[in-house]
């Protein structure tokens, strides 16, 4: 790693101020950022650790019935504390990385990084969540801007993520055999207003909504409804672990399994 200073603010305001320093970067749980720094792929001059910001931690249900998760809440906390309110989300959180990673990694860190193979982007997009920052609220549909790219401005911190709680939801992850990230992950959530299907791991553009499947499932929430649908492998990631065609195929399989598990 290149050397850097570490700031450990206790409030959002202090964190935002610290991020105003030159070449400052926010540090969530560090489960992706620290390995990246080890490869010297980034050279911040100061890392602003958000894990000590108490107001960014915790899981609760808001007055509007939405599940509110602080940006610095670990996957392990979401897995345990969200279960009573939004089991599909808790289940997703309980399978991110491994137990030690889940004890450090945070929802805000994951969404800010927007790794194309990460799980949380699928949950946020699939739930139509709202990404709340120190400056504004961003709808998930407007937030994800492609691989490792988001609507966040420099120095902007995810303080909270608000999830509308669906009638039913499920996430199916097909593991990339080495990294154990999603080779393909599909999050399906059924709301009164319709069904959302979000896909991670597969696309060169990062997480995306499979709108054809959403339409089909809206009128018939069963695995059969998506049987005839197929995605093109052309825009999918093609690498050592699977071709675009294979990923496109897996999206169909995982979608059906998610629907079957949720229904």
């Amino acid at each position: 790693m290149y050397n850097f200073d570490v700031e450990t603010p206790g409030t959002v305001a202090d964190a935002v101020a610290a991020l105003g320093r030159d070449e400052a970067q926010a540090l969530g749980g560090g489960q992706t950022l620290i390995p990246t720094l080890k490869q010297r792929l980034a050279s911040p001059s100061v890392l602003v650790s958000l894990t000590g910001v108490a107001e960014m931690k915790g899981v609760c249900v808001g007055d509007d019935g939405q599940l509110c998760i602080g940006g610095a809440t670990t996957h392990a906390t979401v897995a345990s504390e969200a279960r009573a309110h939004y089991a599909g989300l808790a289940e997703l959180a309980s399978h991110i990385g491994d137990p030690a990673v889940r004890n450090r990694g945070t929802i805000g860190g994951s969404l800010a990084n927007n790794d194309p193979s990460a799980c949380y982007p699928a949950a946020a997009l699939g739930s139509g969540a709202t990404i709340v920052t120190n400056a504004r609220s961003i709808a998930a549909d407007d937030y994800f801007e492609g691989m490792f790219s988001t609507a966040l401005d420099e120095g902007e911190i995810i303080t909270e993520v608000r999830f509308p709680i669906p009638q039913a939801a499920n996430y199916q992850k097909f593991l990339q055999p080495a990294s154990r990230f999603a080779l393909v992950g599909v999050f399906v959530a059924k709301y009164a207003e319709g069904v959302r299907v979000a896909v991670t791991g597969a696309s060169n553009d990062g997480v995306f909504r499979w709108t054809e499947a959403e339409t089909a499932l809206a009128s018939n929430f069963s695995a059969d409804a998506v049987s005839g649908l197929a995605l093109s492998g052309d825009d999918m990631i093609s690498d050592l672990h699977g071709t675009g065609d294979y990923r496109a195929h897996l999206v169909g399989v995982m979608t059906k399994r998610a629907v079957a598990a949720a229904a």
């Binding site: 055999p177 080495a178 990294s179 154990r180 050592l240 672990h241």
Partner: peptide
């Protein structure tokens, strides 16, 4: 079932960490 040390045609190592070299778990 899992392990494969792969190079591309230019001799770049594609499976250069546990992110791409699948160790049995």
């Amino acid at each position: 079932l899992l392990e494969n040390c792969a190079y591309d045609e230019n001799g770049q190592l594609l499976s250069a960490s546990y992110m791409d070299y699948a160790m049995p778990r």
